[in-house]
Design a protein around this nucleic acid. Sequence first.
DNA 1: TACCAGGAGAGCG
DNA 2: CGCTCTCATGGT
Length: 304
Amino acid sequence: MPELICRTFFPVHDYDLDATLTSGQAFRWELIDRGWESVIGVRWVRLIPGPAGIAAETVGPTKDWDWLAHYLQVQVELPRVLDTFPADEPMHAAVAACRGLRLLRQDPWECLASFILSSTKQIVQIRQMVSLLCERYGDRVATARGRPPAFSFPSPERLAACSENELRACKMGFRAPYLRVSAQKIAGGEVNLNSLSALSVAEARDELLKLPGVGCKIADCVLLFAYGFQEAFPMDVWVMKALRQLYFRRRPIKAKRLHQFAATHFGPDAGYAQQYLFHYMRIRRRLAEFTRSERGHLGRSSQE
DNA sequence: TACCAGGAGAGCG
DNA sequence: CGCTCTCATGGT
Protein backbone atom coordinates (compact mmCIF):
# COMPACT_ATOMS: atom_id res chain seq x y z
CA MET A 1 0.00 0.00 0.00
CA PRO A 2 1.65 3.23 -1.20
CA GLU A 3 2.11 5.88 1.46
CA LEU A 4 0.64 9.31 0.95
CA ILE A 5 3.23 12.02 0.53
CA CYS A 6 2.03 15.55 1.25
CA ARG A 7 3.98 18.60 0.18
CA THR A 8 3.97 22.30 0.88
CA PHE A 9 6.19 25.31 0.36
CA PHE A 10 7.23 28.16 2.65
CA PRO A 11 8.26 31.24 0.63
CA VAL A 12 10.76 32.56 3.18
CA HIS A 13 13.64 34.94 2.61
CA ASP A 14 16.77 35.30 4.72
CA TYR A 15 16.46 31.71 5.88
CA ASP A 16 19.67 29.67 5.86
CA LEU A 17 18.27 26.23 6.61
CA ASP A 18 21.69 24.54 6.56
CA ALA A 19 23.14 26.96 9.12
CA THR A 20 20.01 26.78 11.26
CA LEU A 21 19.89 22.99 11.41
CA THR A 22 23.62 22.58 12.06
CA SER A 23 24.04 25.35 14.63
CA GLY A 24 23.76 23.16 17.72
CA GLN A 25 20.18 23.95 18.72
CA ALA A 26 18.59 20.72 17.40
CA PHE A 27 20.32 17.36 17.20
CA ARG A 28 18.21 15.09 15.01
CA TRP A 29 18.47 16.53 11.50
CA GLU A 30 20.27 14.56 8.83
CA LEU A 31 21.19 15.68 5.34
CA ILE A 32 20.13 13.00 2.83
CA ASP A 33 20.15 13.63 -0.92
CA ARG A 34 20.09 17.41 -0.57
CA GLY A 35 17.19 17.36 1.88
CA TRP A 36 17.08 17.62 5.66
CA GLU A 37 15.18 14.79 7.35
CA SER A 38 14.00 14.45 10.93
CA VAL A 39 10.96 13.82 13.09
CA ILE A 40 8.93 16.62 14.64
CA GLY A 41 6.55 15.28 17.25
CA VAL A 42 5.25 12.10 15.61
CA ARG A 43 5.69 13.22 11.99
CA TRP A 44 8.58 12.43 9.72
CA VAL A 45 9.62 15.49 7.69
CA ARG A 46 11.87 16.23 4.76
CA LEU A 47 12.93 19.83 4.03
CA ILE A 48 14.52 21.00 0.79
CA PRO A 49 15.99 24.51 0.83
CA GLY A 50 15.77 26.52 -2.39
CA PRO A 51 16.33 30.09 -3.59
CA ALA A 52 12.67 31.04 -3.13
CA GLY A 53 12.04 29.28 0.15
CA ILE A 54 11.74 25.88 1.81
CA ALA A 55 9.91 22.92 0.30
CA ALA A 56 8.57 20.37 2.77
CA GLU A 57 7.11 16.90 2.62
CA THR A 58 5.67 14.49 5.13
CA VAL A 59 3.69 11.26 5.14
CA GLY A 60 -0.03 10.90 5.74
CA PRO A 61 -2.97 13.19 5.10
CA THR A 62 -1.86 16.71 5.97
CA LYS A 63 -3.84 19.84 5.30
CA ASP A 64 -2.63 21.81 8.31
CA TRP A 65 1.05 22.80 8.31
CA ASP A 66 0.99 25.14 11.31
CA TRP A 67 3.07 22.72 13.38
CA LEU A 68 5.92 22.96 10.88
CA ALA A 69 5.60 26.71 10.31
CA HIS A 70 5.77 27.11 14.06
CA TYR A 71 8.81 24.85 14.40
CA LEU A 72 10.65 26.71 11.65
CA GLN A 73 9.42 30.12 12.85
CA VAL A 74 8.91 31.17 9.24
CA GLN A 75 6.82 34.19 10.25
CA VAL A 76 9.74 35.85 12.02
CA GLU A 77 11.00 38.91 10.19
CA LEU A 78 14.72 38.41 10.56
CA PRO A 79 15.80 41.99 9.69
CA ARG A 80 13.67 43.22 12.58
CA VAL A 81 15.58 40.93 14.94
CA LEU A 82 18.98 41.84 13.54
CA ASP A 83 18.15 45.51 14.05
CA THR A 84 18.02 44.97 17.79
CA PHE A 85 21.62 43.74 17.89
CA PRO A 86 24.27 46.15 19.14
CA ALA A 87 25.93 48.03 16.25
CA ASP A 88 29.46 46.93 17.02
CA GLU A 89 32.17 45.28 14.97
CA PRO A 90 31.92 41.75 16.43
CA MET A 91 28.16 41.51 15.83
CA HIS A 92 28.50 42.88 12.31
CA ALA A 93 31.09 40.22 11.55
CA ALA A 94 28.96 37.45 13.07
CA VAL A 95 25.84 38.54 11.18
CA ALA A 96 27.78 38.82 7.92
CA ALA A 97 29.19 35.31 8.38
CA CYS A 98 25.88 33.69 9.39
CA ARG A 99 23.34 35.50 7.22
CA GLY A 100 19.98 33.74 7.46
CA LEU A 101 20.64 31.85 10.68
CA ARG A 102 17.39 31.40 12.61
CA LEU A 103 16.14 30.12 15.94
CA LEU A 104 13.75 27.16 15.87
CA ARG A 105 10.84 26.60 18.25
CA GLN A 106 11.29 23.06 19.52
CA ASP A 107 9.33 20.71 21.72
CA PRO A 108 10.22 21.54 25.34
CA TRP A 109 10.76 17.98 26.54
CA GLU A 110 12.92 16.91 23.60
CA CYS A 111 14.93 20.12 23.90
CA LEU A 112 15.35 19.78 27.65
CA ALA A 113 16.32 16.11 27.52
CA SER A 114 18.78 16.73 24.68
CA PHE A 115 20.50 19.52 26.55
CA ILE A 116 20.67 17.50 29.77
CA LEU A 117 22.77 15.13 27.68
CA SER A 118 24.84 17.96 26.20
CA SER A 119 27.09 18.77 29.12
CA THR A 120 30.79 18.41 28.22
CA LYS A 121 29.89 16.57 25.03
CA GLN A 122 30.63 17.52 21.45
CA ILE A 123 27.67 18.03 19.15
CA VAL A 124 28.41 14.84 17.17
CA GLN A 125 28.23 12.88 20.40
CA ILE A 126 25.02 14.54 21.54
CA ARG A 127 23.52 13.52 18.22
CA GLN A 128 24.70 9.95 18.78
CA MET A 129 23.16 9.71 22.27
CA VAL A 130 19.86 11.24 21.17
CA SER A 131 19.73 8.95 18.15
CA LEU A 132 20.25 5.82 20.28
CA LEU A 133 17.62 7.02 22.74
CA CYS A 134 15.04 7.45 19.96
CA GLU A 135 15.84 4.14 18.25
CA ARG A 136 15.53 2.21 21.48
CA TYR A 137 12.72 3.98 23.32
CA GLY A 138 10.90 6.11 20.77
CA ASP A 139 8.04 4.95 18.55
CA ARG A 140 8.51 4.12 14.90
CA VAL A 141 6.93 6.70 12.59
CA ALA A 142 6.04 6.36 8.90
CA THR A 143 8.56 7.66 6.38
CA ALA A 144 8.54 8.05 2.62
CA ARG A 145 9.50 4.93 0.68
CA GLY A 146 13.21 4.26 0.55
CA ARG A 147 14.00 6.41 3.56
CA PRO A 148 15.74 5.09 6.67
CA PRO A 149 13.53 4.26 9.67
CA ALA A 150 12.55 7.17 11.87
CA PHE A 151 11.46 7.41 15.50
CA SER A 152 9.71 9.87 17.76
CA PHE A 153 11.53 11.27 20.77
CA PRO A 154 10.64 9.07 23.79
CA SER A 155 8.18 10.61 26.25
CA PRO A 156 9.09 11.51 29.84
CA GLU A 157 6.97 8.55 30.97
CA ARG A 158 8.90 6.15 28.75
CA LEU A 159 12.31 7.36 29.92
CA ALA A 160 11.17 7.49 33.54
CA ALA A 161 10.48 3.77 33.22
CA CYS A 162 14.03 3.03 32.03
CA SER A 163 16.68 1.78 34.40
CA GLU A 164 19.82 3.82 34.89
CA ASN A 165 21.83 1.08 33.18
CA GLU A 166 19.55 1.11 30.14
CA LEU A 167 20.17 4.83 29.80
CA ARG A 168 23.91 4.44 30.39
CA ALA A 169 23.91 1.97 27.53
CA CYS A 170 23.01 4.93 25.30
CA LYS A 171 26.52 6.25 26.07
CA MET A 172 25.38 9.08 28.30
CA GLY A 173 27.57 8.18 31.30
CA PHE A 174 27.02 10.28 34.41
CA ARG A 175 24.15 12.10 32.72
CA ALA A 176 21.94 8.98 32.95
CA PRO A 177 20.61 9.63 36.49
CA TYR A 178 20.04 13.30 35.60
CA LEU A 179 17.88 12.38 32.62
CA ARG A 180 16.07 9.62 34.50
CA VAL A 181 15.14 11.68 37.54
CA SER A 182 14.19 14.69 35.42
CA ALA A 183 11.91 12.46 33.35
CA GLN A 184 10.37 11.11 36.56
CA LYS A 185 9.72 14.57 37.97
CA ILE A 186 8.04 15.64 34.76
CA ALA A 187 6.06 12.44 34.31
CA GLY A 188 4.92 12.70 37.93
CA GLY A 189 3.74 16.27 37.51
CA GLU A 190 6.27 17.74 39.93
CA VAL A 191 7.40 20.03 37.13
CA ASN A 192 4.92 20.98 34.41
CA LEU A 193 6.64 21.94 31.17
CA ASN A 194 3.36 23.05 29.61
CA SER A 195 2.86 25.79 32.17
CA LEU A 196 6.14 27.61 31.63
CA SER A 197 5.13 29.74 28.65
CA ALA A 198 2.69 31.65 30.86
CA LEU A 199 5.45 32.58 33.32
CA SER A 200 8.09 35.30 33.28
CA VAL A 201 11.57 34.26 32.15
CA ALA A 202 12.87 34.29 35.71
CA GLU A 203 9.99 32.16 36.98
CA ALA A 204 10.27 29.72 34.11
CA ARG A 205 14.03 29.45 34.70
CA ASP A 206 13.45 28.67 38.38
CA GLU A 207 11.10 25.85 37.42
CA LEU A 208 13.67 24.29 35.07
CA LEU A 209 16.37 24.63 37.74
CA LYS A 210 14.37 22.26 39.95
CA LEU A 211 15.43 19.43 37.66
CA PRO A 212 18.69 17.56 38.29
CA GLY A 213 21.33 18.11 35.63
CA VAL A 214 19.82 21.48 34.73
CA GLY A 215 21.84 24.56 35.64
CA CYS A 216 21.74 28.10 34.26
CA LYS A 217 23.22 27.28 30.88
CA ILE A 218 20.93 24.38 30.03
CA ALA A 219 17.89 26.22 31.43
CA ASP A 220 18.69 29.15 29.16
CA CYS A 221 19.01 26.84 26.14
CA VAL A 222 15.53 25.46 26.78
CA LEU A 223 14.04 28.90 27.47
CA LEU A 224 15.48 30.13 24.17
CA PHE A 225 15.10 27.15 21.83
CA ALA A 226 11.79 25.73 23.08
CA TYR A 227 9.88 28.60 24.68
CA GLY A 228 11.07 31.54 22.62
CA PHE A 229 12.32 33.67 25.51
CA GLN A 230 14.71 35.57 23.28
CA GLU A 231 16.42 37.44 26.11
CA ALA A 232 17.77 34.13 27.52
CA PHE A 233 21.51 34.02 26.85
CA PRO A 234 23.07 30.55 27.23
CA MET A 235 26.74 31.01 28.04
CA ASP A 236 28.81 27.95 27.19
CA VAL A 237 32.56 27.65 26.65
CA TRP A 238 32.24 28.78 23.01
CA VAL A 239 30.22 31.89 23.73
CA MET A 240 32.53 32.68 26.64
CA LYS A 241 35.48 32.38 24.27
CA ALA A 242 33.69 34.53 21.68
CA LEU A 243 33.06 37.32 24.18
CA ARG A 244 36.62 37.25 25.50
CA GLN A 245 38.13 37.19 22.03
CA LEU A 246 35.82 39.61 20.26
CA TYR A 247 35.03 42.12 23.01
CA PHE A 248 37.86 41.91 25.54
CA ARG A 249 40.90 41.08 23.41
CA ARG A 250 42.68 38.81 25.89
CA ARG A 251 42.24 41.14 28.86
CA PRO A 252 41.51 38.83 31.79
CA ILE A 253 37.78 39.00 32.53
CA LYS A 254 36.05 36.92 35.16
CA ALA A 255 33.05 34.83 34.19
CA LYS A 256 30.83 36.81 36.53
CA ARG A 257 31.67 40.08 34.75
CA LEU A 258 31.10 38.37 31.41
CA HIS A 259 27.57 37.43 32.47
CA GLN A 260 26.89 41.02 33.50
CA PHE A 261 28.19 42.26 30.17
CA ALA A 262 26.01 39.80 28.24
CA ALA A 263 22.92 40.68 30.25
CA THR A 264 23.23 44.38 29.44
CA HIS A 265 24.92 44.61 26.06
CA PHE A 266 22.89 42.52 23.62
CA GLY A 267 19.37 43.86 24.03
CA PRO A 268 15.95 42.20 24.01
CA ASP A 269 16.97 39.48 21.52
CA ALA A 270 20.23 38.67 23.28
CA GLY A 271 19.68 34.94 22.82
CA TYR A 272 19.40 35.39 19.07
CA ALA A 273 22.66 37.35 19.08
CA GLN A 274 24.22 34.59 21.18
CA GLN A 275 23.34 32.02 18.50
CA TYR A 276 25.09 34.13 15.87
CA LEU A 277 28.22 34.38 18.03
CA PHE A 278 28.17 30.63 18.73
CA HIS A 279 27.79 29.64 15.10
CA TYR A 280 30.31 32.27 13.98
CA MET A 281 32.96 30.79 16.27
CA ARG A 282 32.25 27.27 15.07
CA ILE A 283 32.45 28.03 11.35
CA ARG A 284 35.63 30.05 11.93
CA ARG A 285 37.15 27.00 13.62
CA ARG A 286 36.08 24.75 10.74
CA LEU A 287 37.66 27.16 8.26
CA ALA A 288 40.87 27.33 10.28
CA GLU A 289 41.12 23.53 10.43
CA PHE A 290 40.47 23.19 6.73
CA THR A 291 43.09 25.79 5.86
CA ARG A 292 45.61 24.13 8.15
CA SER A 293 45.05 20.70 6.61
CA GLU A 294 45.23 22.09 3.06
CA ARG A 295 48.50 23.82 3.89
CA GLY A 296 49.73 20.54 5.34
CA HIS A 297 49.02 18.67 2.11
CA LEU A 298 50.54 21.40 -0.05
CA GLY A 299 53.58 21.52 2.22
CA ARG A 300 54.14 17.79 1.88
CA SER A 301 53.61 17.60 -1.87
CA SER A 302 55.86 20.61 -2.57
CA GLN A 303 58.64 18.95 -0.63
CA GLU A 304 58.99 16.25 -3.27
C1' DT B 1 49.01 10.88 24.11
C1' DA B 2 46.95 14.71 26.14
C1' DC B 3 43.38 17.65 25.90
C1' DC B 4 38.73 19.07 25.13
C1' DA B 5 33.68 18.81 24.57
C1' DG B 6 26.86 23.83 23.93
C1' DG B 7 28.05 21.73 32.52
C1' DA B 8 26.28 20.58 36.86
C1' DG B 9 26.66 19.41 41.65
C1' DA B 10 29.04 18.64 45.85
C1' DG B 11 32.50 19.87 49.17
C1' DC B 12 35.35 23.31 50.94
C1' DG B 13 37.03 27.74 53.30
C1' DC C 1 29.78 33.41 47.74
C1' DG C 2 33.74 31.58 44.76
C1' DC C 3 36.87 28.03 44.04
C1' DT C 4 38.12 23.03 42.87
C1' DC C 5 37.14 18.30 41.89
C1' DT C 6 34.60 14.69 39.85
C1' DC C 7 31.50 12.65 36.87
C1' DA C 8 31.72 9.04 31.30
C1' DT C 9 32.94 8.87 26.86
C1' DG C 10 34.57 9.85 22.31
C1' DG C 11 36.86 13.17 18.91
C1' DT C 12 40.81 15.59 17.42
